[in-house]
Design a protein around this nucleic acid. Structure first.
Lengths: 344, 344
DNA sequence: CTGAAAGCGCTTACAG
DNA sequence: CTGAAAGCGCTTACAG
């Protein structure tokens, strides 16, 4: 049997309470006693039972997730996964609140974060945005001792305990490499679509993509079309772009609004369609992939990200280590052949 | 606060013990009483606290993993992940034993499985193999009431509670599609390497790959080279194959032994190298990818598979539901740009 | 068929 | 600075 506090107590001739103090590094134990306990723990190979501790502490974790509102289907996926996790975790003394703020609006995000405090919240997962207001809000949360992880979009310079999401430069590079391979030596222009060049993740994806294309002979990127992640704007901009650049051989949409892109390309005869790479698996992009309108999808797993954020926050609070490999969010590539089963 | 057994007891005017019986569907409760409890649970919204139950039951889960021995680096990864999980889970009343049997040896596997029983083991994760001996061993485990999941390689017809691994037909199709895209209209032959055509996962990968290549004009697959997953055999066979087929434009290794493949191709001038797609990310394949010897790696996450197997077995025993999306093993595609950070 | 009590491994006041 | 005791939400014998 695994040793318990009781065993360590008996072995060291001390009480359970004292062992507990040492195990949890609580103050008020003589150095001599600490050493006595530590040696007993070492010889017995004591390991703290975290679930028993949770139970005794009757702590209820209350995590706040902040994502974007609007029709962006990746955000919908995040919302669904958060809700699923919420229901699934109800039997674990764990509550989850979901808030949605407008994208591209740091002020709104900061206002929300500034309302959070330890009385009602034990940790925060947030889609970060640049800007002083957001930074100050994060500084405040840190001062309050609330653990914070950035989700999907990071600002490395701001105080946060971890980033849960993909490396967007690498994602852009991946798209660039696929584009180069798929075009296999053909020459021409590549149209780039992004939500906004003021948003870090799109800027990073673009940089990665252009890095790779710059090394690829015969291919050049056009200036980025900024769509504010709005399908209708994507559709209009792309249509105009295609008609004014007959030499477009590829399209990379690093943002949302795939519906608009698909609309536009459906009007193009299959034999004349450029190679198309987009981000985020959704009902629409999946369908476009199977129709041959889209050639590859770069994806990140919303469910994985949500669960990982939760584990990271909980580990921070419980001061327990994480399984590193489990928290690494992958840059996934989907072709028509390796699509996961569609959700029911 | 979430309601507890005590609350339900008070609300229904019964004792905690009776509530417990109903919650856990234990026998010996009058139908009338059952209904009384159920209605109380429903109105209070009672949810069982699984961790408290685990603690009280002081059940120690003891799971057995059976994988292959030998130098196969994917098996090494599995072994590492199992060991990591073992250490990580020690504080969860959870023990894990790892056994390794020779690959391609159903008799040895069956012998091992036949030694398992509920006294020393509460669940089994096993790399399945076809054959009567294995089937009978699985039938025996089922009769003993031990939950079993097949890991990495499945035999759908055999009794098991779940399969934790990828769809190998889809993996083969994915490799085939990538090959077609990368070759971009070039004509020629494709060399196929597998461990054995008597092993289901390789047979399935081949089928998927050939399905896609058959639809691709200008490409044909050569007969499969069977290497028994031995690097040296791969090296020799491939060298001979390349020299007798100067029109080889692609190589697909659906099995192990990538080291041999890399050796052989290192000797080929870069400009004359075929497109190469292999399975399983490893130190060697990763390096070959960065050197441009390998063009893409189809991968499955050993850590994810091991953790998933554990969750599935535990859920079976605890009779709790699973988070479906979390247990879906992905067919991952790696290019040089989206490689995860190398393990330290 | 139902209930009272002890216990799982820990934490938390409270005493001393 | 250290310890005895109650309690977290559940399960398990044991009584009745």
């Amino acid at each position: 049997m695994r040793p318990t506090l009781k065993d360590v107590a008996r072995h060291s001739g001390l009480s359970i309470a004292t062992i507990d103090r040492v195990v949890n590094q609580r103050p008020g134990v003589r150095q001599k006693t600490v050493e006595r306990v530590q040696s007993a723990m070492a010889t017995l190979g004591y390991i703290r039972d975290v679930t028993a501790a949770d139970l005794a502490r009757r702590e209820v974790y209350r995590f706040v997730f902040v994502i974007h509102d609007g029709p962006n289907s990746f955000m919908q996926q995040l919302a669904v996964e958060i809700e699923t996790l919420r229901q699934f975790s109800a039997n674990n003394r764990l509550e989850i609140d979901l808030y949605r703020v407008p994208p591209f609006d740091g002020a709104a995000l900061a206002r929300l974060l500034n309302r959070l405090d330890p009385a009602t919240c034990s940790g925060v997962a947030v889609i970060a945005a640049d800007g002083v207001a957001v930074r100050d809000a994060l500084v405040r949360l840190k001062a309050l001792g609330l653990p914070v992880v950035t989700l999907v979009s990071d600002v490395p310079a701001f105080p946060r305990d971890a980033y849960v999401g993909i490396d967007n430069v690498a994602a852009g590079r991946t798209a660039g490499r696929l584009m180069g391979r798929f075009l296999g030596g053909r020459n021409g222009k590549i149209a780039l679509v992004a939500g906004s060049m003021l948003v870090r993740d799109h800027v990073e994806r673009r940089m990665g993509f252009e890095q790779v294309i710059a090394e690829t002979r015969g291919l050049d990127c056009l200036p980025v079309l900024e769509s504010r992640d709005d399908s209708r704007i994507v559709q209009r901009m792309l249509r105009d772009c295609l008609s004014s650049h007959p030499d477009i051989v590829g399209i990379y949409n690093m943002g949302a609004g795939n519906r608009g892109l698909i609309e536009t390309l459906s009007a193009v005869p299959p034999t004349e369609r450029p190679q198309v790479i987009v981000h985020e698996l959704s009902e629409h992009s999946r369908h476009a992939l199977s129709e041959g309108i889209v050639d590859a999808i770069i994806h990140q797993d919303a469910g994985h990200e949500v669960r990982s954020a939760l584990r990271v926050l909980k580990a921070k609070i419980d001061k327990i280590p994480l399984l590193q490999g489990q928290e690494q969010i992958r840059i996934e590539i989907y072709l028509n052949e390796n699509l996961p089963a569609a959700p029911a």
